[in-house]
Computed example of a mutant assay.
Amino acid sequence: MKGTIIKLVRGIYYVDTEIGVIKCKARGLFREKDISPVVGDKVEIRISSEDQTGYIETVYPRKTELIRPAVANIDRALIVFSIKQPELNTYLLDKNLIMTNYFGIDSSICFTKSDLDSDEILNRYVEMYRNIGYTVYVVGKTDYSDLESIKESLVGRITSVSGPSGVGKSTLINKINPDINLKTSSVSLKTERGRHTTRHVELIPLEKDSYIIDTPGFSSLGLDFILDERDLSDYFIEFNQYADKCKFLDCMHINEPECAVKEEIGNSIYQSRYDSYILFINEIKKNRRY
């Protein structure tokens, strides 16, 4: 019987099939082949006649996948970051955007807690990421004017909702569909870190052919999926229109003369994005050494 993995909890896969959700385990053969089924995978299962549990027999090829969170067959990613509590971490946001670009997944950004924007930095970042080419939404405790636009973007798609702990992902999902009623939690005032309320990845139906994938929060993200630092600039979308104009075809946009990308820093390319690029270059080099 064919189905879709909608939840994974402690090694138990919940597979949605034509007869309902079946609890399944994965065959040991997958471990030998280094195959790890994830939420969103299309699978074929065998159901035991004894207790009506199942075993995953086949994992079908994925059209898309992400590694953080580990999900498959999504159409787009909604990356959620708060302006305050916890503070906006643009390096971590840029890493998420690099990852979705690397895996060929369309992504948009949602900035939350706009009501805490006392020093008015929100507009600067909204303008920056929109100018780069991303769709950006803004929500706050009393401002959900972008909510309808977010809902429209989810129609007919499977969307992964991800971001650091405490930024308000569960609150946002509850606003999108109050029937879901996900557990929410406050941010620790001492550490300014969110408390994990989502413990597992879960695919949640919204309406016909529309789903969101709720994912646990995170505080870090590696770039080990990029093996060569020379490939990194391909995933900074604002670099692409200038890279062909550099003097050297293999320009790294660091120390080379007549670099069209560096010439645009402060104009079409934001300094903070270039700073992220340099930081990530060094991280990838370090990963390669080890």
Rank of each mutant, 00 (worst) to 15 (best):
residue 172 L to A: 03
residue 160 S to R: 02
residue 154 L to I: 11
residue 130 R to D: 07
residue 156 G to K: 13
residue 173 I to P: 04
residue 134 Y to D: 03
residue 161 V to P: 13
residue 157 R to N: 09
residue 132 I to C: 05
residue 164 P to R: 03
residue 179 D to Y: 06
residue 137 Y to A: 04
residue 136 V to G: 14
residue 187 V to Y: 09
residue 145 S to K: 15
residue 151 K to I: 12
residue 173 I to W: 02
residue 190 K to M: 03
residue 179 D to F: 08
residue 192 E to S: 07
residue 171 T to C: 03
residue 178 P to E: 00
residue 137 Y to T: 10
residue 146 D to T: 15
residue 188 S to P: 09
residue 171 T to W: 11
residue 178 P to K: 00
residue 145 S to V: 14
residue 177 N to Y: 05
residue 186 S to D: 05
residue 160 S to Y: 04
residue 160 S to F: 04
residue 133 G to I: 04
residue 175 K to N: 09
residue 157 R to I: 00
residue 144 Y to N: 15
residue 191 T to A: 02
residue 134 Y to I: 03
residue 163 G to Y: 12
residue 163 G to Q: 12
residue 143 D to N: 15
residue 131 N to C: 00
residue 141 K to G: 14
residue 133 G to V: 03
residue 173 I to V: 10
residue 146 D to S: 15
residue 133 G to M: 05
residue 174 N to G: 00
residue 152 E to C: 11
residue 135 T to I: 07
residue 169 K to Q: 01
residue 182 L to R: 10
residue 168 G to W: 04
residue 138 V to W: 13
residue 141 K to M: 15
residue 186 S to M: 08
residue 134 Y to S: 02
residue 135 T to W: 07
residue 162 S to L: 14
residue 189 L to A: 05
residue 189 L to H: 06
residue 157 R to K: 12
residue 190 K to L: 03
residue 145 S to A: 13
residue 174 N to W: 00
residue 157 R to T: 08
residue 187 V to I: 13
residue 172 L to G: 02
residue 134 Y to N: 04
residue 182 L to P: 07
residue 141 K to C: 15
residue 131 N to L: 04
residue 130 R to K: 08
residue 139 V to Y: 05
residue 141 K to R: 13
residue 165 S to V: 08
residue 175 K to R: 12
residue 128 M to C: 08
residue 168 G to R: 03
residue 149 S to R: 06
residue 166 G to M: 07
residue 168 G to Q: 04
residue 173 I to E: 03
